[in-house]
Design a protein around this nucleic acid. Sequence first.
DNA 1: GGAAGTTTTGCAACCGATTGCAAGTTTCAT
DNA 2: ATGAAACTTGCAATCGGTTGCAAAACTTCC
Lengths: 332, 332
Amino acid sequence: MSVTLKDVAALAGVSRSAVSRTFTEGASVSAKTRSKVEKAAQTLGYSPNALASSLTTGRTKLIGLISNNFHNPIFLEVFDQFTRALQERGLRPLIVNLTDETEPANSVRMLRQYSVDAVIVASSTLPPSFAKAFHDAGVPVVHTFGRSATSPEVHVVGIDNVESGRMAARELLARGYKRIGYLGGPKDATSARDRYRGFMEEVEKHPSIAVSYSFADNYSFEAGRAEMLRLLQGTPAEGYFCGDDILSIGALSALSDHGLKPGIDIGIIGLNDMEMSRWESVALTTIHQPIKQIITSSVDLVEEMLKDPKRYPEARIFPCRVIERGTLRPRP
Amino acid sequence: MSVTLKDVAALAGVSRSAVSRTFTEGASVSAKTRSKVEKAAQTLGYSPNALASSLTTGRTKLIGLISNNFHNPIFLEVFDQFTRALQERGLRPLIVNLTDETEPANSVRMLRQYSVDAVIVASSTLPPSFAKAFHDAGVPVVHTFGRSATSPEVHVVGIDNVESGRMAARELLARGYKRIGYLGGPKDATSARDRYRGFMEEVEKHPSIAVSYSFADNYSFEAGRAEMLRLLQGTPAEGYFCGDDILSIGALSALSDHGLKPGIDIGIIGLNDMEMSRWESVALTTIHQPIKQIITSSVDLVEEMLKDPKRYPEARIFPCRVIERGTLRPRP
DNA sequence: GGAAGTTTTGCAACCGATTGCAAGTTTCAT
DNA sequence: ATGAAACTTGCAATCGGTTGCAAAACTTCC
């Protein structure tokens, strides 16, 4: 069927080793054989079977990319960045869509069957234990957007979620909001909990401030909208920190239903700064999470681990910053 | 390092063949050996190396998934559906992000190196020749969202883009718009051209109707917005068919800048019916493209091709229908 | 020209599985 | 108990490559 090493060797009149060597970086071949081989390979249309070679080399260049955020548009950006960053380095993403399950066992088994060189868990909602399961199975792993504090056994790249919560609280307070609220992602997501913690920590320094909180069912437009609609049935706060831009946009939609103007009637600050938040019709004031840097750094880290799988675990934390748009009242 | 067939065989006290056979469907093993092997495998934590077995079986269950639409949110839905559908059937998506190139040679080579069993080209902008390159290289291929008419050599699953153009035109005419326009995707995308063709074909039956057209730079919010802003500098038409929901949403944003109300001042009809179009703040009237059915059918087709790689090429065309929301004036 | 040093080459074993074949074991009817 | 038929099993070759090792082929230098 397809053309193999042997065919090329035969045509070029050399041994199979010679052919193998012309296709492996830094192997010893004379210019003469190399050119003979290359010509033969050319005419036969040969290209080496990466999977076969992985058998002996132990490297597949396959990287498992696991996620469960398929309803948050930010993830398209994340996907785009990841696939590109991996491709640029000659690595191949093998996707796992975890939409309905959070049990690592299956994914671990499957990814081991395919001998992935490493795994990237790209999710802010999966627990550290999920990533750790790969580590325990001997698979190098990076948890991007993961929780840093409590997972010393696994590489984590992302932001300090607690600090981002504080930052949001400070921002709302600086704008003079007196009754503020946290509208977070799903209660069991580490990111939602950490942001909550930071937010509360900061607010509690100011006893005069009234604070409330609630958690949406997941990081999605619908969940954000539903939660804000619920809040609007009672007495809403003056300003909200929504734990993610997509929640914010859902919340904005709820406000609009009630004829409320964001930034005027009710303040909203999000987190992520996704493309959509920049749209003029959205103009969301938000905390910028440096997605691109986080992803590049994650892939860098993956490469490091390919060289040294026992690399000492590390947390790479990137700072966030507030992006001023139109959904908070101006600072006084 | 990792535990292999041999280790299990040794522990279970049987030959390697016996182990292999207990792990392959429908092979001949006695209940006794099977249980011995399973126990040994259990204690060792063995699971077969899919790549090694692919060497002899010639099947990897790896499916190349190629796309270039990483700036259209619809693609997140597409991605979600594809990865799930493949997973459910025990197939593994190997992603290729084609953002900057349209030259098939590289992708073909790479995917052949990884011995993918088949390739799915998920793009409405790549030409039929792109998909054909895989066919020519002997790789089974399905072009999802591809152009059906002129590519008899490759399986295509999608909609009839020409007909969708006609449908849009009929809808605008039925609402009594007298000056209508097509705001399409990139000029070199087959989908944009076919929709244009159908649109014009239908309009030309009505000589009294004034028609105009233009093409956005790509299928993105920014491109749609930019193009509509440009149109608004002159004398815009009364109703537009935007060749994709994301273009429509970009266009809506432009209208809003000019204080124009969609459905009242200017009509907009999109195509796709993506999640976002259902958001109350968007409420886009659009032509529903049955994404889920298209994707399921594509993966079905992939499975068929695994059984019979020489399967006679087929176009699977799914009907669309208009979804009435708020961006067209009501039918009289 | 020849010794020593450096490169290049092919052989053969190996990576982790599968599978045709023949020998060994069961089953079962007689 | 016997023989034929049906299952199981292990051997050994194979899939498409890589790589350590020793032999062969070049260089270099005197």
